[in-house]
């Protein structure tokens, strides 16, 4: 539907949508054309299973794993972080907000914070040993790899010896920051180079745009 501002200014729905996209671009590292190109991606994802203009968890799962079914700890966390309003669906605005963090030019602090929230499964404000254990165990199961409990404990011990500097058995936000700055490869997944040339990846936005960057 049209927003109040556009109704009161008697703008057409098309112009209204352009105004909303322009507003979203203002508050993100994306240009208006890039937001429009991402809207093409959003439209495609949000109608893949339920055609309602919102991304449901199954649709995100389908896009990431080529199959909409099955429990996945990581997908649950990613979806939860995208879904700011916690209403079980991802709206376009939420999609842009979350993808902004993955932009190559997004501030590193935002990437560090987002990654922390991904790993803080129970949202306690700390990354705890059990959470790390749970994530490693989930990957082992997912990839059908076998690792002895002894080796798994050793890996987690070593990781905590390095990351948990006050030795209280959990990693705080501050400890996490120091740790990832020492191991920047851990933030590799937090940057999507595709976002730098999203207009080339989704050229169909050109048919809908009224704006030239």
């Amino acid at each position: 539907g049209q927003c109040f501002d556009c109704r009161s200014r008697r703008r057409s729905p098309q112009t209204c949508q352009q105004a909303n996209l322009a507003l979203l671009a203002l508050d993100s590292p994306f240009s208006v054309n890039e937001v429009e190109a991402l809207y093409e991606l959003f439209k495609k994802l949000s109608c893949s299973i339920i055609d309602d203009g919102l991304i449901h968890k199954e649709e995100l799962q389908l896009a990431l794993f080529q199959a909409p079914y099955g429990e996945n700890l990581f997908l649950d966390r990613v979806f939860d972080l995208f879904d700011e309003k916690k209403n079980g669906v991802i709206e376009f605005e939420e999609f842009i907000h979350a993808l902004s963090v993955f932009h190559p030019y997004a501030p590193i602090d935002e990437k560090i914070h987002f990654a922390f929230r991904l790993y803080d499964l129970r949202q306690t404000g700390f990354i705890e040993r059990e959470e790390v254990h749970q994530m490693v165990a989930a990957i082992l199961m997912e990839s059908e790899m076998i690792l002895s409990d002894e080796l798994l404990t050793m890996i987690i011990d070593k990781t905590f010896a390095d990351a948990d500097s006050d030795k209280d058995g959990k990693i705080s936000k501050e400890e996490w920051k120091v740790y990832v700055l020492k191991h920047p490869t851990l933030l590799k997944n937090m940057t999507l180079p595709y976002l730098k040339d999203v207009t080339t990846a989704f050229p169909s936005f050109v048919f809908n745009t009224e704006v030239e960057d």
Binding site: L45, L64, L118, I139, I155, L192, V198
Partner: peptide
């Protein structure tokens, strides 16, 4: 190879790799 739990998680979990959103276009 993986002596760091987070390195293992970030490089092995497909759910944390959003690049496939763009590859599936």
């Amino acid at each position: 190879k993986f002596f760091n739990a987070f390195e293992f998680i970030s490089s092995m979990s497909s759910g944390f790799d959003l690049s496939s959103l763009f590859e599936s276009k």
